[in-house]
Design a protein around this nucleic acid. Sequence first.
DNA 1: GTGAAAGCGCTAACAG
DNA 2: CTGTTAGCGCTTTCAC
Lengths: 334, 334
Amino acid sequence: MTIYDVSEKAGVSIATVSRVLNGSDNVSAQTRQRVLAVIEACDYTPNAFARGLGLNTMNTVGILCADSTDLYVANAVYNIERELHENNYNCLLCCTGYNVEDKQKYLNLLVNKKVDSVILLGSNFISDNDDENEYIRKAAGEIPVLLLNADYDYENVYCSICDDFKSTLQATNYILDTGVEDILYLYNSKSYSALRKLSGYQSALTQRGIPLRAEYMQYFPGSHSNLPAVADFLMEIDRAVEYHAVVAGDDNLAIGAMKFALKKGMSIPEDLSIIGYNNSILSTCCEPELTTVDNRLEVLCHHIVKTLVGILDNKEMPQKVIFSGELIKRGTTL
Amino acid sequence: MTIYDVSEKAGVSIATVSRVLNGSDNVSAQTRQRVLAVIEACDYTPNAFARGLGLNTMNTVGILCADSTDLYVANAVYNIERELHENNYNCLLCCTGYNVEDKQKYLNLLVNKKVDSVILLGSNFISDNDDENEYIRKAAGEIPVLLLNADYDYENVYCSICDDFKSTLQATNYILDTGVEDILYLYNSKSYSALRKLSGYQSALTQRGIPLRAEYMQYFPGSHSNLPAVADFLMEIDRAVEYHAVVAGDDNLAIGAMKFALKKGMSIPEDLSIIGYNNSILSTCCEPELTTVDNRLEVLCHHIVKTLVGILDNKEMPQKVIFSGELIKRGTTL
DNA sequence: GTGAAAGCGCTAACAG
DNA sequence: CTGTTAGCGCTTTCAC
């Protein structure tokens, strides 16, 4: 069933059918009725590929992420997809893994598939070595590139960011205010966003005149999905450093710290205060429940979709928007 | 830059360009070289829409799920996407929510967008009331429909299932073997898969001559993402029923039960044994770690993709495959 | 308000 | 081995 069949049955030209299909005004009520009746009767739907070829779009946007099972990413995907759908766009989801070349290939693939735009989830898509960002600049030459929680200044690249520096600064200060000064910072990523958090931690200490010490900033090299491994890691470094609080780069690491405390027989928060990041489901599954930073994911996602839709609608949109996180105080802090 | 431009610059016809593009043998090495050089030089890529129109496929498959943030679903999406990508397919991800009409609309949309096939994640897409499954039958009339953990017997519908009945039977027996007989079954869904689990629980009891009692099968009406709410729910029904073990429909509910135990001052597993389902990250975030059922998600996903690729390759594929889960024994059982 | 016809960029059958 | 040409199904200008 094609537009020709419909036009024939309705006794009109294909142009007219196309017009009623696309809601053009230039069709008489009668003709429209007749055409609609045929369409209805035949259960006709226009061929999406032909439409794509003609209009040069299929209303599709690509979502790139390293790992969609990451709790933060999974939430972002969900929020973005639902809102994009409301705006009549569909999502091509791509899980690239953390390898730069794979990311490049995948982004390139999406551009070739002619998505209208692409959203990159997480700052791990931006490298410190700007040569490695060439693939992003290239993509931005073709379609708008939207970044969630990554900062990159370039034409046709738009950033929606939560101020991780400020949030971590605030979280660290919150602990400092309780009188605890020996705070371990535990992280698992060296992305832009991750390093901003680290900076926030450092600034908080520095502002109070507390010297920074390398052994208090621990990088966990494994996967943060392996919770017991995080605890084991802390057990290993236990002789080298003594601390009474940990600020973690995400909730997973914080839970690892809780498991560590339990093994050591330390009570939380009396012996060890802990603050996570992301306000994920993990923060309510433990006991006591985790004090954590809500990084306003819904707001960010809402904004990113709004921006995207605006751009594709040829409106002028801000290239960078920064929101503030919020400390959610629960049981793991004094 | 189109195939015409390339053909012109290479001094050949578009057919020849198309041939080298599609790896046809009928091109001399020289000509191929010349064409490839031009393609390289111009950074030419064929127009995906035109290609789609000609071939009637864009190598896209739709993934439908109610909620991609659900831990089980998130894992499924990830595994399927990665494997599909290896087979040169891309994924249109759709989060429908739990409303039947929305599911219908969304599935219909995908068919109209001409995806090659569609994968439905979770048995909540199949209704007991077969009238509500009409949209699935209709879709199956156009493209292969693959079901993850749902059972539906229909032409062009393929099911990959984990035997939830058996797993839950086994889990329940495991507790019964420790001498505990008053076991609460806690569930949160009435999907096919969920009811199979319930059956497994019931069978285990019945086989041992233990009478079934309605108050021992509790349906939690809220969202299983709200862990504290699960605990509160158990507190509420606490006067009505006394039990020393809970078998839960998923890890979330099990964690809720753990929180409940803590509130009540019951120790796990001495006073209360608990078994979850899915072997999600939640099962290792708690203390003690959760005994749970691994429902072989990776295996199921691998199989579903293999089936899908086979079907689209016109191979004969089994319409239903059933795998067995595995009980992962950890700290919440005796 | 309606129709004819020219693309959109590619694939594939057919002819040579 | 290579070129010609007829679609694929729709949108959109341009006449009438």
